[in-house]
Amino acid sequence: MKRQKWATWSPETPEQHYFVRPRHLAGGGNLAYITEHLRASGWKDHASRAGTPIVFDSPDHSVRLGYDPSTTPPGWTISGKATPDQPAWHATLSSRIPVEIVAGVTHALTQPRRAHAPNVWAPLREQNWRTDNRDGHHTATSPDGTATIRFHQEEPGTAIWWATAHTEHGKQWEAVFSHHTPMHLVAAFTTALADPEPLLRPRDHVPATQKIHTTSVSALPSQITARLRERITSARATTWAHARTPQPAAPRPHPQPAHTSR
């Protein structure tokens, strides 16, 4: 008689995680939070492998996103090509910026741009960031003083958006958006930056600083992965719906009246 093999059932073991606030000091996080969402949104993945640079192109090839772990420091780059309606632009973001904040920008890149111009400073003021305007340089500082974003312009055409965060150990990250970066992307960054919701991090990935407040929680691995799956499923549904939406046909040229000679 053959011995039948039975699959053993092994229950999940809860793992200790922490909610970290303020979110801008929570550390980088899982890169898949960005890459899997872009892939599900129809962006072209240039065969990224673990430990190698990540490169994605938007479906219309107008924007390229990269993450290079070999640079010092490693970080994100986002570049937009010049179009008839938009000059070329560029943004760089350090690797220690939480992926949830970077995702504010990348998510905006996968959505249609709204017609109205957004207010970049509004999300910050709503969360009690202190604002200041000196010598034409507009600045907003987080309530705890550990993060700053500034609109800096030395002369016309040279303006940049610059953001940074620091702890008692010094600067933790910085982000720079070039002069022609679309305002809806900068506004998406400030919205994600000012969001008061804490970020979840594994026990071994909580930054060592006295500038953060943590709340310990017990979470199952399936609960953690479900958060990412839900985000990916939503992106796929949006991409599928957009693909099925009929695009407006190009206007047909009006026939010109024939000229007759008399």
Rank of each mutant, 00 (worst) to 15 (best):
R3Q: 14
Q4H: 13
W6Q: 08
T8Y: 06
P11M: 01
T13V: 06
P14F: 04
E15I: 01
Q16L: 03
H17M: 01
H17Q: 03
Y18Q: 03
V20Q: 04
P22T: 06
G28L: 00
A32I: 00
A32C: 04
I34A: 07
R39Q: 12
G42R: 07
D45Y: 09
R49P: 03
R49T: 13
P53F: 06
I54P: 07
S58V: 03
S62C: 06
V63M: 07
R64M: 10
R64N: 07
Y67K: 15
Y67F: 15
D68Y: 02
T72Q: 13
P73H: 09
P74Q: 05
W76A: 01
W76Q: 10
I78A: 03
I78V: 11
K81T: 02
T83H: 04
A91S: 06
L93D: 00
L93M: 09
S94E: 13
H107F: 11
A108Q: 13
T110H: 14
Q111C: 08
A117W: 12
P118N: 13
N119H: 14
V120A: 09
V120N: 13
R125T: 09
R125L: 10
D132C: 05
N133R: 06
T139H: 10
P143I: 07
P143L: 02
G145A: 08
T146E: 02
A147K: 11
E154N: 15
E155M: 15
P156C: 01
P156F: 08
T158S: 15
T158Y: 11
A159P: 01
A165R: 05
E168L: 03
H169A: 13
H169M: 13
K171T: 10
W173F: 05
A175L: 00
H179L: 04
H179I: 00
H180Y: 05
H180Q: 03
H180F: 03
L185C: 08
A187N: 10
A188F: 06
T190H: 02
L193G: 02
A194Y: 11
L199V: 15
R201T: 00
R203I: 00
T209S: 13
Q210R: 15
I212V: 10
S218C: 09
S222Q: 05
Q223W: 08
A226Y: 11
A226M: 05
L228R: 11
R231F: 06
I232N: 07
T233Q: 13
S234L: 12
A235G: 12
W240L: 07
W240V: 08
A241P: 11
A243P: 00
T245A: 01
P251H: 07
P253Y: 00
H254I: 10
P255C: 02
P257G: 03
P257E: 01
S261L: 12
